[in-house]
Design a protein around this nucleic acid. Structure first.
Length: 231
DNA sequence: GTTGAGCGTT
């Protein structure tokens, strides 16, 4: 039973996803399966891994076949210590079958007022289909410390050298750049104005203030091969 | 090899 997430979502026609948080970084699906399988039929277990390092991201998704079993797993495994860490089990909100969970109203079925110290924010009651699949693959900063390490050592993916770019991709990139430029032009009015914002525009001497006179020659002067006092 | 809020793969 270690082929979870290898062939994609196997059968999500009638499953209920659970989100397992705060698991150890070395906890695998095989470690979670015997735990969750005790409380119901586990259809699939998926642990998102970092695309770059391949390490676990510290959370997992466990799909149950029945909602009551999933609810029971939440009740029994939430706060359970796994691999030295206290995991957090709750129903997944986003995902392929998030709507199903919403329809089943499993979250509000048993409010489990057990007085658990782990206070789960009961906010976020609506907007399910709004950001559904809208977050793409955002590599959110998982931890401040990890970011520090990434900055110090992670120079691998600093600049993605596009070795080969198809035409349509290039066109798309150009469009995006053009769009950015357009929106920026709206803020700065014009590129020449942007140049005037440069701190070292004119050295206090040598250049006469007439250089910046509002004459139509402004552009011509800029095109001059000799007036490169910047850069 | 480190770390610790959060929501997912062919």
């Amino acid at each position: 039973m270690s082929h979870f997430g290898r062939s994609g979502p196997p059968d999500i026609s009638d499953t209920y996803s659970l989100l397992i948080l705060n698991i150890s970084f070395r906890t695998t699906a095989d470690d979670l399966f015997p735990l969750f399988d005790r409380y119901g039929k586990v259809v699939d277990i998926f642990i998102p891994k970092d695309r770059r390092t391949g390490d676990s991201r510290g959370f997992a998704f466990v799909r149950y076949k029945y909602s009551d079993e999933a609810q029971k797993a939440v009740d029994r495994l939430d706060g359970r210590e796994v691999d030295g860490r206290e995991i957090t089990v709750q129903f997944a909100k986003y995902g392929p079958n998030a709507e199903r969970i919403h329809k089943g109203r499993i979250i509000e079925k048993s409010p489990r007022g057990r007085g658990r110290s782990r206070s789960r924010s009961p906010r976020r009651s609506s907007r399910y289909r709004d950001d559904y699949r809208d977050n793409d693959y955002r590599r959110r900063s998982r931890s401040r410390s990890r970011d520090r390490y990434s900055r110090d050592r992670g120079h691998r993916y600093r600049s993605r050298s596009r070795s080969y770019t198809p035409d349509y991709d290039r066109a798309r990139d150009r469009d995006r750049y053009d769009d950015e430029r357009r929106s920026r032009s709206r803020s700065y009015e014009s590129p020449s104005s942007r140049r005037s914002l440069s701190p070292r525009r004119t050295p206090t001497r040598g250049k006469s203030p007439y250089s910046r006179s509002p004459s139509p020659n402004h552009d011509s002067r800029r095109s001059s091969p000799r007036s490169r006092d910047e850069e």
